[in-house]
Design a protein around this nucleic acid. Sequence first.
DNA 1: CCTCACTGAGACAACGCTTTCAAGCAAGCT
DNA 2: AGCTTGCTTGAAAGCGTTGTCTCAGTGAGG
Lengths: 343, 343
Amino acid sequence: MADVAERAGVSASTVSRTLRGMSTVSPEVRARVEKAARELNFVISRQASSLVTGKTGVVAVLAPTLNSWFIGSALSSLGPLLRAAGMELLVYVTPDMTERAAFFERLPARRNADALMVFSFNLTDEETARLDDLQMPVIYVSQRAECRPSVYVDDVAGALGGTRHLLNLGHRRIGFVQTIGASGFTFSSHERLLGYQQALTEAGIPLDNDLVVATPVGHKRRTAEAVGRLLSLGEPPTAIFAEQDEVAVSVLWTLRRARIDVPERISVLGFDDHQMAEWSDLTTIAQSPEEIGRAAGELARDLINNPEADQARHIVLPTRLMPRATTAPPPADPDHASQQPSS
Amino acid sequence: MADVAERAGVSASTVSRTLRGMSTVSPEVRARVEKAARELNFVISRQASSLVTGKTGVVAVLAPTLNSWFIGSALSSLGPLLRAAGMELLVYVTPDMTERAAFFERLPARRNADALMVFSFNLTDEETARLDDLQMPVIYVSQRAECRPSVYVDDVAGALGGTRHLLNLGHRRIGFVQTIGASGFTFSSHERLLGYQQALTEAGIPLDNDLVVATPVGHKRRTAEAVGRLLSLGEPPTAIFAEQDEVAVSVLWTLRRARIDVPERISVLGFDDHQMAEWSDLTTIAQSPEEIGRAAGELARDLINNPEADQARHIVLPTRLMPRATTAPPPADPDHASQQPSS
DNA sequence: CCTCACTGAGACAACGCTTTCAAGCAAGCT
DNA sequence: AGCTTGCTTGAAAGCGTTGTCTCAGTGAGG
């Protein structure tokens, strides 16, 4: 910086003022300084400036993995947003319990970031408490954290709309496949089931617990079993709503292997609009991780710049039904004479 | 830090020495300092220490997106490795040309990282030159950069091995589907084609240019056209080797839609071992992004700690054939009486 | 013509840490 | 005893910024 000052024939203070875009610099001097800075290829050192301002200009992200459609997309839209705000993106990946424990033990973000964005979806209470200790805004993404800033989609409304779509097509027996995580059902899981149930109730259809089955994600065998349970009912469903696209695709595979035509015989509906959904031409309820990332970034920015802001703001984003090739009216059938068969 | 020093009854120098694990601190004092630091929940500020040491303790990554199987996996294994080395991971995402131009214009990593890892696979010469200006090690991942540190897999050997597998199964007519990127064929593309050709030559099979077709990735229509070109040959291939799994899966879909049984009628081989390959039960040549990420991280660590090291080291990693359900002996046929038909 | 408000620019003290350098001190040697 | 050596520790000088304070001009108003 001294070099730039000398080359421009001004003091270091003026260089600093210029480079930070302060208005108290005369246009002529400003031009000289900017020219000198460009010629010397100079950028200010975040380390040095953060030392005196107390702001690091960094947003940290805690994520269990980066190899995830959702997290990857969210971060890809978060990055440019942060850049526009002059901030950088620091990532802490905790793929296993060792890494995770190390993170919570040391809390390395403590003095090295202005805000933390949490993409780990199954924090324990102690872990959450530990994050509360952190003297900075902590934003929970895709999860509801009571009294803490959060960003997530309206799962109830999404599942409600999706189920209504199936009802509108004429389906009356609709199976629901829940996803069991490492630590039981997630909050989203409950909400999506709720939306499904609300839609049925609206339509005057009694709830039938036999129609709700569960499987862990990525476990083909267990998913096949769950589908088998639905297929072996006295009155099997004509549509299956899977709480997650990854499970929905697995359901599709199971049905395909069993030579049950989709959507002619059974319709399949997913949730998320995962990349695979497009590949499989799966009808699904879309959530936009890009939008979530952007919203989280804006929230972080606001909380950093304005510590007086509401520190427990929740941002709820909408979902959108994405009609594709795996849903159709149910097969014509004596019980549902009012339906016209699809081609 | 002053607080810790006071609490432990020592000077700031001693606290610094202790916390950095220097050996010149007596065990008794060390214990006192560590206790005080723990009680006050103190961690040293990277900003302040980097100011004096000149090291930032940060490795920066330049990536076009994070929503990519390869990059996501590589970073997920890079993260823990860096943590073990006491470093952090800073990510610059450049999803569009604007962001990319902004990055190369400002080179924000300049003073904010100790090394840069480049995951952008199609840099222009000016961009590369710009990176050379950066006063820090720049590591090129999954690409060969002349005279600069790089990490990548042995594409020739991988394609050679994969093609040999098809030959060993009895195939003699093997199609090759190249991938056209935004800027033509990548270096990998050339190498993989080369491996394919080497295997054929080894086996004494003359090269036939009609068997090599090209398609952009993710473009179903163009991929179908490319497959159509192979199917309309006088003597069509009994196996198709796609240079990338994403294209291979697209080929699978095309064949399935055309009711051509895989692998009974035509075998399909991919390259990468993308997540989708496992889903589709696609035989493929596996590369491990986790391993690549780890190797790149170690290389970065070495180059940072040891500026005298070879600044143009190339690390070449092996590939592995992953046999799955899309390859089988070719259908029995008068020309190949020695083959027994598969079930 | 003098004073005053105002604007633009420089001097300088932090910020929190590391790193010489010097000093204190106990032990070993002559 | 006096001197040297080795091991710990403290004091102080930065590292590259920012922000406060000060000061020199400049034009307006009295």
